[in-house]
Design a protein around this nucleic acid. Structure first.
Lengths: 224, 224
DNA sequence: AACCTTTGGTGACAAGGTCACCAAACCCGG
DNA sequence: CCGGGTTTGGTGACCTTGTCACCAAAGGTT
């Protein structure tokens, strides 16, 4: 534990010593179990979270009751979009749920505001994080509007697969991630199976031909 | 011209005198004709624009060559999302085009950065603007994923109609705004016409029954 | 008037979302 | 190990939307 958590965040490692101290003193490491709602609409965000371990899933509840997956925050990233609402005292319209057990640094509003004022490096860190998230949102919109479901599913499967090329997710979960219906996922996966690209079993998908999936993704405009 | 432009922006009117002076001195009023590309991907944003008159349309060019409409910046609002890239020195992936002749205040990066550091009021202004834009993006995603085209079209027609209940836009333009095909707009408008809600003529749509359109929008989840 | 461009209309089809319903796999208490 | 409930996945019918190919009408230009 000799190395500070600060060095886990690329943009922060250049902070001058006094700011580092203030950041460490003015923040606190928190742990939350999987499934916890980290922030929710109608609830003012009081902390900026910097993820040390685990992932947080950010989604929006639709007026119609359903949910859209927006993005996922990984270790080393931050829930920076909530800060807009921290400082503007507005409600955040999306909710965040810990997908796994999560360890994170919580920076309270006062500390955050103070650091943004004092430190150009911190400011750049914050705005860079914004920039990345917003680009992600743009890419998401692009995806939804223009890319075919099979391509998006293939892409997501590749992204979610573990070292053994297995994706642990039900069809319903995958549908939810892509903002589509479970039936569509089932049908598309059947098609992938027919082509010999995947094997299926309850609650998981085994990718038997990553190359083919990658080719499908690549063959129609690229996105990670 | 006795009143400063600053008072046209709600969040800025409370700025303390010294900051006001700095803001006025460190920025500049610019005019650009309709059709100008105000910012583009691959081009670093050097100024934050605060719109005094006119509108700017922000869209993203897809990998596949097509365009998605993202949002529109009106007088009294700012192109704040570009600032993320200003400070982070990253490229912005969307492009902005002046839809009308535009007058705007251009705040250069240095001034912007300085003001964010010095003034809590300015900081709040910036983050509030962020918050609003991001909420809009979330709402857009929600719309695209869950709402029917007829509802979205009705909603957009109401939004774009002038004092005489006329929308000046071709089907192609409307399709582009909604991220759908011209044909779909044509078909849907025919249906609206059949129901007696609109009259059509080349390049414009006359809303003859706003109430009916509003009812359609209201009847399936609301969004302005 | 002859021609071109822009705009809008249409039919056929493919992709995707919705609904209703069923079947297989799994889970758990007894 | 059995039996019932729950979760997960599969399927067909149907509707909406996106795509393609093409045409027709309106406007503008020379």
């Amino acid at each position: 534990m000799s190395a500070s958590w600060i060095d886990r965040f690329k943009g922060l490692s250049q902070l001058p010593p006094d700011i580092r101290d203030q950041l460490e003193a003015g923040s606190q490491i928190v742990s939350v179990p999987a499934g916890t709602q980290v922030f929710a609409p109608g609830q003012t965000a009081d902390n900026l979270l910097l993820l040390l371990d685990g992932t947080i899933r950010v989604q929006q509840k639709s007026d119609t009751g359903r949910e859209v997956f927006l993005y996922r925050v990984h270790a080393g990233e931050s829930c920076v979009l909530t800060t807009a609402c921290m400082l503007a005292f507005e409600d955040y319209s999306a909710d965040g749920i810990a997908e796994t057990d999560v360890r994170a640094v919580a920076i309270p509003r006062a500390t955050f505001d103070d650091l943004v004022a004092k430190s150009p490096v911190f400011r750049t860190f914050v705005f860079a994080a914004y920039s990345r998230r917003i680009s992600d949102l743009f890419a998401l919109i692009d995806d939804i509007v223009f890319r075919r479901m099979d391509v998006r599913l293939a892409s997501r499967l590749l992204e979610l697969s573990d070292a053994r090329n297995v994706v642990h997710a039900t069809h319903a979960v995958l549908g939810n991630e892509l903002g589509t219906a479970r039936e569509v996922v089932s049908r598309t996966l059947s098609e992938f199976h027919r082509r010999g690209w995947v094997e299926q079993s309850r609650g998981e998908v085994h990718l038997t031909d990553r190359a083919a999936l990658e080719h499908l993704v690549r063959s129609s405009g690229m996105h990670l």
